[in-house]
Design a binder for these strands. Structure first.
Lengths: 96, 96
DNA sequence: TTAGTATATTACTATATAGTAATATAATGT
DNA sequence: ACATTATATTACTATATAGTAATATACTAA
């Protein structure tokens, strides 16, 4: 694995390597959600969730669109969905 | 995804979410290697590599065995290999 | 037992990340 | 224009992680 790839992939994994961010990615797998829904679902504070969403967007994991007062986030990188599926298929018993 | 699972999976992803650790996991996919080989392959310093190996062992990603003067590390968690394969199959063009 | 090789640990500094609280911005409805 | 809801940003503190340099431990061979 070359350095560029390693840096890049590590960055993406890092964007998912946090319990709340993982939950965010998890819930967005079924489709886009607005910030408010995400905040409630992960049970965190609004500002923290907003920061984490922003971080995930920076890493290319998520993207968003505004619709009126609401901002909807979705998974931008389809490979993230594949990674998550891999997690689901193999890690349900805390095996990963 | 429940909290316990999220914490656990995030911990494992975190163990891989670093360029050098990712390279280590990558090279160990083909089988166990001794520390010296790993240090040379990743081109880092011995002490840093040792610390990273230890961290990955703590997270359950790697395990090791001593054979004489050498210590051989290997991937302990087979799901990590699946995750890496997922990365290979999908992220070769920096798409993840 | 001494020297050399292989690996681990420690103490330290620098940097990054997480979390908190407050405030700012954007849009909507009255 | 104003109040309300939705989201983002900022400044700050606390904690975690990365990296460095030095030293310690474990083993081997002479």
């Amino acid at each position: 694995m070359n350095d560029i790839t390693a840096e890049h992939v590590a960055g993406v994994l890092k964007a998912l390597a946090h319990p709340v961010r993982l939950k965010i990615a998890d819930m967005l797998e079924s489709g886009e959600k607005c910030v408010n829904e995400i905040v409630e679902a992960v049970g965190g504070k609004q500002s923290i969730t907003s920061q984490q969403l922003n971080m995930m967007k920076d890493k290319g994991v998520l993207s968003c669109r505004r619709e009126g007062a609401r901002v909807y986030y979705r998974i931008e990188n389809p490979n993230v969905i594949r990674l998550l599926n891999c997690v689901y298929n193999n890690c349900q018993k805390n095996e990963v």
